[in-house]
């Protein structure tokens, strides 16, 4: 069991006033609340912060912590057992709720050794069973409905199909694998509901549902906006000027597209119904945005031809721009 430096966790000095402690706690609680902060570490941080505050906000607990906490640390560092007299230290911690900031249950075993567990006067060292329950801290509410993130590639989301997910039962520790059927054309932000796969209901309540929140992994070729897909089509200057045909890859295979003569960069070619599938209103469109690219180095021939073009052409690419500025 590790010593926990509650002062360091809250980022306050050992001589901090109760006001300073409360201020630090509130600030950190807002920052790391798992419903606000999506970082995977946020939940653990938030739990730690809550535990630290639970001790330091109460002058009596704080005093005990100051006294026995440092002895504990010293004992741990020297590899010994907890300080003598430890078995007499318990604190009737029963989750006082006069403070709005007190939604915590399930503290670290360090905390439980030091202060005992809620409702049970048994933090004593000589009763090893008492304080050692592997506490699963619950910041969840009684409802058993739960949510998780399901990351899909654009292709997976478009085609739908089966995807395996593993769920571990927190009580038995058993892992079960489920093959989830992903509806075709699911979009980021949408949810898949798996009935009865959530947590256990309270009392005789029914088992909750598990919701999978769909997220799309970044895709190098396509960008999704609503039901429409955007991609780029690289063309040579002469293809853009003279018009050409090119192969474009779409979500379902390659297609030939016509590049109209006189296409500048940014022009969009629309391929109707080649976008993202949608069960309700049909597939969206695919927009291929033309991007004119030039060779990095020119052959002698190419250079000669470009130079000739430069001399003969009367085209003024900046004419419109200059006019609008004037």
């Amino acid at each position: 069991m590790d010593f926990k430096d509650y002062y360091a966790i809250l980022g306050v000095s050992k001589t901090a006033s109760q006001d300073e402690i409360q201020h630090a706690y509130r600030k950190l609680a807002r920052q790391y609340h798992p419903d606000i902060n999506k970082e995977p570490e946020a939940e653990n941080r938030f739990k730690e912060i809550g535990e630290a505050y639970e001790v330091l906000k109460d002058p009596e607990k704080r005093q005990k912590y100051d006294r026995y906490g440092s002895a504990w640390k010293a004992a741990q560092q020297s590899g010994g057992t907890p300080p003598p007299g430890y078995e007499d230290v318990w604190f009737d911690f029963s989750g006082s709720s006069e403070d709005a900031f007190s939604g915590f249950s399930g503290f670290s075993s360090f905390f439980e050794q030091l202060f005992g567990r809620g409702g049970q006067r048994s933090g004593a060292w000589n009763n090893p069973g008492a304080g050692r329950r592997d506490s699963s801290w619950s910041w969840t509410m009684p409802s058993a409905d739960q949510e998780a993130i399901l990351s899909l590639t654009l292709e997976e989301a478009a085609r739908g199909g089966q995807r395996e997910i593993s769920l571990t039962d927190p009580e038995t520790g058993q892992t079960k694998t489920y093959a989830v059927k992903i509806p075709k054309g699911i979009r980021p932000g949408q949810r898949i509901r798996l009935a009865k796969l959530g947590g256990q209901g309270t009392g005789r309540g029914p088992a909750g549902d598990l919701y999978l929140n769909v997220e799309l992994l970044p895709n190098a070729a396509f960008r999704l906006e609503g039901r429409d897909l955007y991609t780029t089509l690289a063309v040579a200057p002469w293809e853009a000027a003279l018009g050409a045909e090119a192969t474009l890859s779409t979500l379902d295979g390659n297609v030939r597209v016509k590049i109209p003569a006189g296409s500048s960069s940014g022009r969009r070619i629309r391929l109707k119904g080649r976008g993202f599938p949608d069960a309700k209103s049909g597939a969206g469109d695919l927009y291929a945005e033309i991007e004119i690219v030039v060779p990095k180095s020119l052959s002698d021939d190419e250079r000669r031809l470009f130079e000739e073009l430069a001399q003969r052409s009367t085209f003024q690419p900046r004419a419109a721009e200059t006019k609008s500025r004037a």
Binding site: E164, T177, Y178, A179, V180, I186, Q190, I192, R193, A195
Partner: peptide, 14 residues
């Protein structure tokens, strides 16, 4: 490991 096939229902689609 046993695999159970689940039918995912999309929530937002009517």
């Amino acid at each position: 490991m046993r695999t159970t096939v689940m039918n995912g229902l999309m929530v937002q689609w009517g």
